[in-house]
Simulated assay, not measured.
Amino acid sequence: MSNWIPLWLHKLSSPPTFYRFAGTLRPWAMALAVLFGVIALYGGLVLAPADYQQGDAYRIIFIHVPCAWMSMFVYGVMGVSSLIALVWRIKLAEVVAMESAPIGAAFTFITLVTGSLWGKPMWGTWWTWDARLTSELVLLFLYLGVIGLYHAFEDRRQGARAAAFLALIGIINVPIVHFSVNWWNTLHQGSTVKLFGPSKIAWDMLWPLLAMTLATKFYYVASLFHRARTDLLALEGGKDWVRQIAEDEARK
């Protein structure tokens, strides 16, 4: 087993192998994302009861909370991939890290926008320099910084290494985002969904939230596979396996 895992990882990190692997799984991931998304929206917007304090305004959580979780999750993936890219110089790790950044930035932007829409009726303001909101905004700036630094270099691999270093520095902000409501006085409510122990949310509201979380996870996988495949073709242009793909497409 100890020998099988490195061999498996080594084979998967090969650009042509990953290209085929991602191409096979991407349609399934997108289909599951749509399926769980539809189920979650129906459960959250139609079946779930109104909140006794917030009324129907709380329903924005079915978008806001999963996107907030994904903003941190994607940065975690980007950070791990960046570490692998810097230490072992694996091209696929660079691709995964750099192509995760725009997706994570989109999730973070949606989190901030939906949070503002939710905050107006709940707090009476669109924005406040709350610890959770501010650290989430910093997370967006980190994503944008990684994207900008990556594209600032003519040599894409050199740009990826520079951006990976920035991503690693910024990883410290992820636990700050997560634990900010516990470390500081904040208007933002604490965690209501717990992995260990009972969650502080009714099951009728919890299951659509979890379904939407699965939808965002599958969407991330599908989107990452699509972006990574496109990027690999650009990076590996001129290689035999890329020419073979071009020839196969021309015959169709």
Score class of each variant (00 low, 15 high):
134 T>P: 05
127 W>P: 08
39 I>A: 15
138 V>Q: 07
72 M>W: 11
70 M>T: 09
113 V>K: 07
174 V>Q: 03
78 M>C: 05
89 R>M: 02
96 V>Y: 09
129 W>I: 06
155 D>A: 03
121 P>S: 03
81 S>P: 12
126 W>T: 10
62 F>V: 10
157 R>L: 03
46 V>I: 15
168 L>W: 01
165 F>K: 04
107 F>G: 13
178 H>V: 01
42 Y>K: 08
99 E>W: 10
64 H>C: 06
75 Y>H: 12
74 V>C: 06
102 P>F: 14
85 A>M: 06
125 T>F: 11
57 A>M: 07
42 Y>D: 11
126 W>Y: 15
51 D>P: 15
66 P>H: 09
154 E>D: 14
163 A>E: 03
64 H>D: 07
112 L>S: 02
114 T>Y: 01
94 E>Y: 13
153 F>M: 00
150 Y>I: 02
154 E>G: 13
178 H>Y: 13
115 G>W: 15
162 A>T: 02
115 G>M: 12
71 S>N: 11
64 H>Y: 05
43 G>N: 08
173 N>W: 10
40 A>I: 06
97 A>M: 08
121 P>L: 01
155 D>N: 14
65 V>L: 12
127 W>G: 03
162 A>G: 03
104 G>Q: 02
108 T>H: 12
96 V>I: 15
159 G>Y: 00
126 W>M: 07
175 P>L: 02
96 V>K: 04
80 V>M: 08
130 D>C: 13
89 R>Q: 13
39 I>Y: 05
110 I>C: 05
146 V>R: 04
123 W>I: 10
80 V>W: 04
167 A>D: 01
114 T>M: 06
70 M>I: 12
158 Q>C: 04
153 F>D: 10
70 M>N: 11
172 I>T: 10
161 R>F: 00
65 V>S: 07
92 L>T: 13
85 A>I: 10
61 I>Q: 04
105 A>I: 11
152 A>R: 10
123 W>L: 09
114 T>C: 08
